[in-house]
Simulated assay, not measured.
Amino acid sequence: MAETTPAEVRAELAGLEDPKARAVNEKHGDDHGVNLTKLRAIAKRLGTRQDLARELWATDDSAARLLATLVCRPKEFGRDELDGMLREARTPKVHDWLVVNVAKKSPHAEELRLAWTADPDPAVASAGWALTTDRVQKKPKGLDLAGLLDVIEAELKDAPDRLQWAMNFCLAQIGVKHAEYRARALAIGERLQVFKDYPTPPGCTSPYAPTWINEMVRRQGE
């Protein structure tokens, strides 16, 4: 049985386009109308196909690019290739999925983390902070957590939206995962008040760092 071609995959994605879903997504800066559960089902059926992933990414279509992040082999992308892909990721969802599904699993993750965090483009810098948060959670050895808190304290309040969100997440995770820095993380959040009035649906945890930290710690039973 012949493998599904890129053209066939794109036709299938086009068939899943839902104008109502697109309208909702566009409010968040995204430009696709494909249900993500259905998109993940396509990825599961296709399996891992690196060549297809590269062809889908090259289309510049957001739904195709989201699918590409699910069917690729992250370790097969070069460092410069991933850097270029991140800079091409125009929408928040494509940007996030590229970081979570590909960059975090790359052997170049640490090199990219350092380069991206220092980048003048706030969207690129936000990817660096996302990789930093991943290390805060999973591989903190060697990280200067006090130094990260210094940077967050100095820059979080006035950071552009996407960068601010990523830095705030890092602040919260330092407070949740590292008890010795919890009091300082809470104090920074309380002083800066970032996201304190963020509209939060019932049953969800506020992104306001002190609330987030205290709720996650409570759930952990600490």
Rank of each mutant, 00 (worst) to 15 (best):
A7I: 05
K177W: 13
T59N: 02
A179Y: 04
A125T: 07
A64Q: 08
Y208E: 10
L16P: 00
L66I: 07
D161K: 10
L16W: 12
D158H: 13
H32K: 10
T48Y: 06
R135W: 09
G142Q: 14
T200N: 05
E55G: 06
L131T: 07
T48I: 13
W212C: 09
P207I: 01
V217E: 09
R184K: 09
A115F: 06
D96Y: 08
T59F: 04
R49I: 01
N35P: 09
W97Y: 14
L149R: 05
V100N: 13
P122W: 06
A53F: 01
E111G: 02
L86I: 00
Y198L: 06
H32V: 03
A146D: 11
D197A: 07
L98I: 11
A64T: 05
Q137L: 14
V99L: 03
D30T: 08
V176C: 11
L52I: 00
R73D: 15
K93F: 03
M85P: 02
G33M: 09
E110D: 15
T91P: 09
A109W: 07
D51N: 03
D96F: 01
L112G: 02
E153D: 15
A58P: 01
P122A: 03
K75G: 14
I213T: 04
I188M: 05
I174G: 04
P122T: 05
M167L: 10
A130R: 15
K44N: 11
F77G: 04
N25P: 15
G189K: 01
D134W: 14
Q164F: 04
G78V: 04
L114I: 12
T200P: 14
S126V: 01
R162G: 07
A43N: 03
D60L: 10
